[in-house]
């Protein structure tokens, strides 16, 4: 099956937050008491009960100008998904759509994915000892529907479809914007399953890594130490076996001991 990806076009987003709410509705996520902290952004950040969030950033522009940037923050569904790589229980996995889904039943809350994700997406809930994140509405995809956030988006800022189609539409749009749009997501972690067309340079968006990658700690652990953790004990066992065969057990001979003892 062709890989499915989501496109967020910030140049079309009006920050209405229909996506944020649709996500809560479809996934049946409760609201938590919040307060206004001097921003429209609420809740402040992703949480076990908020899997998609519109981030609001105000950026100075010119003498009197300002830019108001909106960003749909949710799982990026990386090709090289660090979370899947580190997930020891198999709760996080790649689906047939190329998205990263989460089988909550398997998750034991080891939180390794939380530290591995370069985008800070998985959210740990101590009360359930589980991690939560956007799964691109797997239950909808399985029924031939697009994710709830995409369905709810009034302006077409969110789109969903086959990778080829979305990629070419995104490139076309960036060309059309002629310097007014920045493609984000095609150049790292093997390409993300949620692509951004940003209205401004990525550096102007809060909480958005400019060069995200699978963390070195994950590579050291999973690509080097993991094989080593099999090789090393295996080698030791093999060496012990050989030692037993060649050198033999260290038996204390009575005569020699006695001799020495008497000496």
């Amino acid at each position: 099956m062709a890989r499915k990806i989501k496109l967020f076009d910030a140049t079309k987003c009006t920050g209405c937050r229909a996506c944020q709410l649709a996500c809560k509705q479809w996934n049946n996520l409760p609201a938590k008491q919040t307060e206004n902290r001097g921003s429209y952004q609420n809740p402040e950040k992703l949480s076990p009960t908020t899997w998609a969030l519109i981030r609001f950033d105000e950026v100075d522009s010119g003498v009197n100008g300002v830019k108001w940037l909106f960003r749909h923050e949710a799982c990026m569904h990386c090709t090289d998904a660090a979370c899947v790589k580190v997930c020891s229980t198999g709760a996080l996995y790649k689906t047939e759509y190329g998205t990263v889904a989460l089988d909550s039943g398997k998750c034991n809350g080891c939180k390794e994915c939380v530290s591995a994700c370069p985008f800070g997406i998985p959210q740990y809930d101590p009360s359930t000892q589980k991690v939560y994140k956007c799964d691109m509405c797997l239950s909808r995809l399985d029924n031939g529907l697009e994710p709830a956030c995409v369905k709810a988006c009034p302006t077409g800022a969110l789109r969903f479809g086959d990778e080829d189609e979305i990629m070419s539409a995104a490139r076309e749009r960036v060309a059309e914007l002629d310097g007014g749009g920045y493609l984000y997501g095609d150049k790292f972690v093997g390409g993300t399953g949620m692509l951004y067309i940003l209205q401004e340079k990525p550096t102007l968006y809060s909480h958005l890594p400019t060069a995200p990658s699978v963390p070195t700690s994950v590579i050291v652990w999973k690509d080097w130490l993991k094989p080593l953790s099999l090789i090393a004990p295996g080698g030791v066992l093999a060496a012990a076996f050989l030692h037993y065969l060649i050198k033999g057990p260290k038996v204390v001979e009575e005569s020699s001991l006695d001799k020495k003892g008497d000496a």
């Binding site: 580190v86 939180k111 390794e112 994915c113 939380v114 530290s115 591995a116 370069p118 800070g120 740990y124 963390p215 700690s217 994950v218 050291v220 652990w221 130490l225 993991k226 953790s229």
Partner: peptide, 14 residues
């Protein structure tokens, strides 16, 4: 909280 430097803890543990 499992933020990014904590990732090295997993590696050291392993």
């Amino acid at each position: 909280p499992g933020r990014s430097p904590i990732g090295w803890m997993y590696t050291l543990h392993a």
